[in-house]
Design a protein around this nucleic acid. Structure first.
Lengths: 139, 139
DNA sequence: CTTGACCTTGACACGGGTGTCAAGGTTGGA
DNA sequence: TCCAACCTTGACACCCGTGTCAAGGTCAAG
């Protein structure tokens, strides 16, 4: 498919698709007229890229992660895997875990705060009018 | 404490501290000579901000989250809490959960890939020399 | 009093991800 | 044949979080 269809199906702009390709996140072949030609795998890739960017990762990190994110049952490539690659992936995995921890702690804090607000609201509702200042003068 | 000490203790630049203050993430009073004056709470704040920025959140989102991230046993403020605030916080909580899900899925994919690589390496080690091409000629 | 370390505000620059526009090539249908 | 819709590359501009530099104020130690 050409870039327009890919972008429409993925819900992104063609600008973004070209940027992802220039960043080495996706690949295309070229039609005889020099138009980019993408396969279905590229579509899934773009959706994955969107998810990861929205989750706060940079294109550099995403590029490092791509070998792990093979689609359905694509065969794993063992050939060009150097110990450095493995070490880099382990670092990225740990950095992901760190992010997850931070976000989880803070999400829980938000949830706890909301729960506290709710308890307060319920208690206020149970005690009808304990001298509540509403900003409006009492007649 | 003044901005230099705060920055040094938090491990950030004074530029960053000023930016966080200009973004409404921290507050300071002013000394008679117009120098900024920070308390210990600000230090904890800056550390929290660093965590959240490193986790991929924007200063806007962090600002929305700040009311929930009260330090030790600070009393909860119920006063200026409008239903809109609550709704916004619930949205942010859900967005955090989404991020956490995405990152967790992908971290697990990386971990699975690494495990696969390890299994492959172990198997290769167990079978000493099954016509391995090492790039070097066999004497 | 002078020096040096610290502070102030203001500005310019950069990289990352994106929007938008220009100037031109290709193609299918009226 | 010509138009409209699609594609190409290239550029300029934006926002965000930082770095860096300039020009100047404050203060303590020598």
């Amino acid at each position: 498919m050409r870039i327009g269809e890919l972008a429409a199906r993925a819900g992104v702009s063609t600008r973004q698709v070209r940027f992802y390709e220039a960043s080495g996140l996706i690949t295309s072949t070229r039609l005889p007229n020099n138009y980019r030609d993408y396969d279905e795998v590229a579509l899934g890739r773009v959706e994955q890229i969107r998810e990861l960017l929205a989750a706060g990762l940079s294109t550099q990190v995403i590029r490092a992660l791509l070998p792990c994110l093979r689609s359905p049952r694509a065969p794993i490539v063992f050939e060009g895997v150097t110990p450095e690659t493995v070490a880099a992936l382990e670092r990225e995995r740990d950095r992901l875990s760190e992010r997850i921890d931070v976000l989880t702690r803070n999400r829980d804090a938000v949830a706890a705060y909301l729960a506290e607000l709710r308890r307060h609201a319920d208690r206020s509702a149970a005690t009808p009018a304990p001298a509540r200042r509403t900003g409006r003068a009492v007649p």
